[in-house]
């Protein structure tokens, strides 16, 4: 069994967190990064018996993931899985996600909801947010991916050594793909299910991501 670390960044997810933690426990060492939650997410994570890291103030999902990655690096993780705390992802798909890394076929595996016919993506989100985002990402970064900003991904220890998330907010998802490309890491996409709740990233968050990416380049 590989040394798998499952990183769950969490900000005010008290409603789903306990269930999410229990669902992923069979698949590896769970690390919850509480990103300055103001509800009782932290207490829930601690009482679930997992390793919990606490950001004293909210820094964003990218920052929380990097904190989790750092811990995984220091503890000799062989595979790291990024998993959302809001119950969007399906824990049973973790073995499928890490399989290409276990088989030495890829350094990074990205979940894609477009490869899975069962993913019921809301019409507006699919055609007016996700598809343009995928087009933008592929043309800017020179990659051929079917999905963008799907938080369900797995990284090998080699990829983990190379990738450093500097984008604190949601732009981290594009930054990770950019670093996969610039570090010549091999990658694969795996079909995953995304369960939609009423929230998620809208058009304005898309603009914020774009702004963060541009300023991130200027302010290195």
């Amino acid at each position: 069994m590989n040394n798998v670390f499952i990183i769950i960044p969490c900000y005010n997810e008290a409603e789903h967190l306990a269930k999410v933690i229990e669902s992923v426990k069979p698949y590896g060492r769970v690390v919850v990064v509480d990103d300055g939650s103001t509800d009782n997410s932290f207490q829930i994570a601690v009482s679930s018996g997992t390793l919990v890291l606490k950001h004293l103030v909210n820094r964003g999902m990218g920052a929380a993931l990097e904190t989790g990655d750092r811990l995984a690096r220091s503890q000799g993780a062989e595979i790291v899985v990024h998993f959302d705390a809001d119950g969007q992802h399906v824990a049973e798909e973790i073995p499928l996600l890490i399989q290409p890394i276990v088989n030495n076929e890829a350094d990074a595996v990205l979940g894609s909801r477009f490869l899975k016919p069962t993913s019921a993506i809301p019409f507006f989100k699919k055609h007016f947010i996700l598809k343009p985002a995928v087009f933008f990402q592929n043309s800017m970064l020179g990659v051929k991916l079917t999905d963008a900003h799907n938080g369900f991904r797995a990284l090998s220890c080699h990829a983990l050594e190379k990738i450093r998330i500097t984008q604190d907010g949601m732009a981290h998802a594009t930054e990770i793909i950019e670093q996969i490309k610039t570090n010549n890491l091999t990658y694969q996409e795996v079909p995953v299910t995304v369960i939609y709740h009423e929230f998620g990233q809208g058009f304005l968050s898309g603009l914020k991501i774009l702004k963060d990416l541009i300023f991130g380049k200027i302010n290195k």
Binding site: L53, K54, H55, L56, L71, S74, D168
Partner: peptide
């Protein structure tokens, strides 16, 4: 902002539950 993140991360990693 980036510097604040560094401090927050350092504190988070320096003592886990």
């Amino acid at each position: 902002q980036k510097e604040i993140t560094k401090i927050v991360r350092h504190l988070a990693l320096s003592e886990t539950n």
